[in-house]
Simulated scan of single mutants.
Amino acid sequence: MGYANPQSLVSTEWLAQHLNAPDVRVVDASWYMKHLGRDPKAEFKAEHIPGAVYFDIDDIADTDSDLPHMMPSAEKFSSRCRRLGLGDGVRIVIYDGGGCTAAARAWWMFRAFGHDDVSVLDGGLPKWKAENRPLADLPDVPRERHLSARYNTFLVRDVDQVLDNVKRNREQVLDARSAGRFAGTDPEPREGLRSGHIPNSLNLPYQEMFKADGTFKDATGLQAAFDRAGIDMKKPVVTTCGSGVTACVLALGLHLIGHRQTAVYDGSWTEWGGRDDLPISR
């Protein structure tokens, strides 16, 4: 694969071999857009990888915010993870039912709170099921575990920082939405949002991180995708999307090939496109 940080991605074969390891914890972070009509909690109850716990990005969030699944406080993140048995001294492997989208968001959250021993299951639950690997339908009862959560602001950008960057252009902004949404020719799936993109930003639909089978491209393929998007690997990158989920897929892709200055704009287009006082381009 040639990744600079191969530890951030594990194969279904690796997880199957380490499923019962005492220092490995499995997390289902499935989340779906409403128009898909899928219930991730119900699906988790029906079937999940044995020993997995459900990580709800809408609950482990700043629920006082009007924006979806914004980053929670370190205290809330630590409390919720402790109840799930996720904490210091364990390797956390995250998957989701869609492949590697919401899993990438949870991966980024753990890193933003100082837990670097975290990986994404390459291909996610679809690949696991396609290989006829074991599934469970009984809830796991985790033992609480301490988590030392320390918020790393270098991995997160807020709206004021992104607006300042529009003027200063110090960081490259990379949008994970589709080309049509980025151009403003296709409607946004969330009502009430303007169409277009953040001025001076670049576009790389998150699907370009994956091969046809839903697993991540190798380092050469990822690098080629970022090159096509016009990314200079020597400069900082801020990823964005609709609500801060698929932006994390791009952040994971950049991390895999060794980019060291990557942050995620947490509010993303739900915030930017929902405000009339912020500039947009089409």
Results as ranks from 00 to 15, higher is better:
V159E: 14
A251D: 06
K217Q: 14
V118G: 04
D164F: 15
A247L: 05
W108I: 12
S281G: 08
R82H: 08
P139G: 12
D276L: 04
T215E: 11
P134T: 14
A4H: 06
G184V: 14
G114E: 03
F110W: 04
D266Q: 03
F44H: 09
D116W: 07
W272S: 11
I231L: 03
P50Q: 08
A61L: 10
T153Q: 15
P199Y: 05
D140E: 15
R228G: 05
V245M: 10
F210R: 09
L86V: 08
D59H: 05
A179I: 15
K217C: 10
D232S: 13
N132H: 06
L36I: 06
V159H: 09
T262Q: 05
T185L: 05
V141Q: 11
L138H: 15
P142V: 07
F182C: 11
D23P: 04
L174P: 04
V90A: 02
L135Q: 07
M233I: 15
F110I: 02
H259M: 13
P72S: 09
N5R: 05
N5Y: 01
P126C: 05
C100N: 02
G184K: 06
R157M: 11
P50G: 10
L15I: 09
G244D: 07
T215C: 05
G196I: 15
R170N: 15
R145D: 06
F210W: 11
Y265P: 02
P40M: 08
A103G: 10
Y32N: 01
V26Q: 12
N20W: 06
F210C: 01
H115S: 00
F113N: 01
Q7R: 08
D122W: 02
L155G: 08
D160K: 15
V159G: 08
H255A: 01
L125G: 04
E75Q: 12
Y32L: 01
E144H: 13
R181I: 04
D266H: 03
P236K: 08
H18K: 09
D64R: 14
V118Y: 01
L138G: 08
E271H: 12
T240F: 07
L202I: 13
N132Q: 14
Y265S: 07
K211Y: 03
P139Y: 15
N5A: 07
A183F: 06
P22F: 01
K45H: 12
D62Y: 10
L254W: 00
S11E: 00
E75D: 13
D186G: 04
A46D: 14
A46F: 13
D117M: 03
G2F: 01
R105A: 02
K129H: 11
R82N: 12
L254H: 00
A263G: 09
A224P: 00
S195I: 05
R150G: 00
